[in-house]
């Protein structure tokens, strides 16, 4: 089966740092920032192991604020 490669884009200013996407990702791709905050002062979600992302959308589906856009492409 062809492997899927995914990538996520987080709307940083919309993110409230709830961490539910981090918990939902089966591959620990996401983490909250530890140093940076958005304009509201929240630590926001970012991909720290993006190479392993499969584009499964779990993170985006659970995000209560609709902050995550997911792209997926078959590996050639």
């Amino acid at each position: 089966m062809a492997k899927m490669k995914g990538a996520t884009v987080v709307d940083i200013e919309r993110c409230k740092g709830c961490r539910l996407c981090v918990v939902a990702c089966p591959l620990d791709v996401l983490a909250l920032t530890t140093k940076n905050v958005n304009q509201k002062g929240y630590n926001y979600a970012e991909a720290v192991k993006e190479d392993t992302c499969t584009g499964c959308c779990s993170c985006a589906i659970v995000c209560p604020d609709g902050c995550i856009t997911v792209y997926r492409k078959k590996e050639e």
Partner: peptide
């Protein structure tokens, strides 16, 4: 595959 190659309209699978 680079991030730029994945993040294209035709590969979009989830958005708000």
């Amino acid at each position: 595959m680079t991030r730029e190659e994945i993040i294209r309209e035709e590969n979009l699978v989830y958005k708000k």
